[in-house]
Design a protein around this nucleic acid. Sequence first.
RNA 1: GGGGUCGUAGUUCAGUUGGUUAGAACGCCAGCCUGUCACGUUGGAGGUCGCGGGUUCGAGCCCCGUCGGCCCCGCCA
Length: 598
Amino acid sequence: MERTHTCGGLRESNVGEQVVLMGWVAKKRDFGVFTFIDLRDRDGVTQVVVSEETSPDAHAKAKYLRGEFVIAVKGEVVSRAAGTHNKKLATGDIEIKVSELLILNDAKVPPFQLEVAGSENLADESTRLKYRYLDLRRPQLQHNIRMRAKAVAKIREYFDNRGFIEIETPILLKSTPEGARDFIVPSRIHTGKFFALPQSPQILKQITMISGLDRYYQIARCFRDEDLRADRQPEFTQLDMEMSFVNREQVYREMEGMFNHVLKLIDVDLPTEWPRLTYAEAMRRYGSDKPDLRFGMELIDLSAELKDTDFPPFAETLSKGGEIKAIVVKGKADYSRKQTDELQEYVKRYGAGAMAWIKVGDETTSSLLKVLGEEKITELASTAGAEKGDAVLIVAGRRSVVAAALGALRNEVARRENLIDRSKYECLIVTEFPMFEHDDETDTYVAAHHPFTSPMDEDLEMFKQAIENPADHHLLGQVRAKAYDAVINGYECAGGSIRIHQKEVQALNFKALGMTPETARSRFGFFLDALEYGTPPHGGFAAGIERTCMILVGTENIRDVMAFPKTASAQDLMMDSPGEVDEAQLNELGIKVAGPRE
RNA sequence: GGGGUCGUAGUUCAGUUGGUUAGAACGCCAGCCUGUCACGUUGGAGGUCGCGGGUUCGAGCCCCGUCGGCCCCGCCA
């Protein structure tokens, strides 16, 4: 028996055809003398009818069927009787009148129900992860996995058409202490030495430019041994690309082009040229370098208004160069004490000491009423642009804290108050990221993007000055980079930069990062050598495949777009990894486990 | 490393102030049923209340510890 159709495709126009379907028993409805079976495969569900009268053999077998049994049915496509059409099924106008039924395989009772009315009541995720192969049978996950395949195909199509060459780079690389923690792999042949898995193919893709390949791309698996999040897994996939002889705008064009091509999969038309926002402006207006532009609620600076205040927390903040900023929540003057308390708790996670509020109701009330007085409160509300009925939420503190706290609060309030239009797709490119971030713990500057990022031409003099004069070292914090991110709906979907192609600038950069020439050489010597043999100007970007797919299928969880994801504690519950290895394997590698085993 | 939250039948959940035999729905098992599609109907099985300890005459419920899922902070060049 050969399958002739899948379970999603048969329609009224197929009536009269003899067909063979194969799939899983999704549901059985037994009426004694005949039985309905909902037969499911990756394309959909088709109802098949087995009648005792017309096919006694098949009917006898149908008695034994249970959920998830694998069967083949042969029969005629028939139109359903009037009044028995099922509008919920794409195939609901027809059914299969079965003449032959084969049980291809039986199945144990699944540990959880695959189909639950209303997708909200899914079984516990750890159970579903242990039986991932069953969870993956759910139509939603089938759809997500197929959407991911389509997205990757679109990406390949885009870059192939644009003259890019797909190049695979090694998975076994050399560890560099920069950036994220490496996953390391012991070498058997070189006992005591280790490979590292790529955090990204960064240096190698730059070397393909030095090699004259001109336009590179790769669907690259990346590995980072850091803690997980709803949108972060220890291994993930990037679209990685690099091009020679280009400026930033040329790279933006490819980012826009690629995403616009991919988003067509869900009939979304993004603008040919995306809005641009500098990092500084994004932080100022949204408190985030990846603002969600599907709603407004921009941050408003109240510092000037409060410059003469004697309220100690505010006065102290301002005297230390901090800021006092606010967001206005439309129509929420009726926030209860409990709600503002909750929002205050939320904001404290980001280091804010407190959150003040003003409610412009019939009367204007405020947590600051006693300390600032009614007049000042009214003035502040008006400066913030609050109208009657609105709430103003205020945070004071260091610039970075205010941005983090209010940026997160802006998203949280939008989520709570349903301010986000799920049918909208808002994209932008954030430009001119800082070159360096200050590490408060060690009082050093670290690369904000990666150590091969080119500074802005305008800032090159300041960069040199900061390094040559120790007194001007702090200027490093002001140096901007030719680095950029692509942001869709508040997700950082891609990031990249124009790279340094002159060895002098590269040396300067290593120095800024506190690396001696010797250290730099021991870590990146091969790359520094390569830079000296005629490196073209080049740049590129890397896009997160999973984050892009999350947008395509409308989920907030990365596990929904990966076939075999890991838990928040970085385990695979299905294969139970990571696992122990034999003593013999360790001996062969010359490895002894020093710490206590779990 | 830190914080929050959840953990009761195969699954989703309820379980009062600490009180006799821990419930419901779905699923599962057995029967009946000629048009269902959340089929209906009759009957039945199914529990280490995550685990360990403590308080108490008595703990699913209170306390301490621990394990696991999820979310967040730190971390993620």
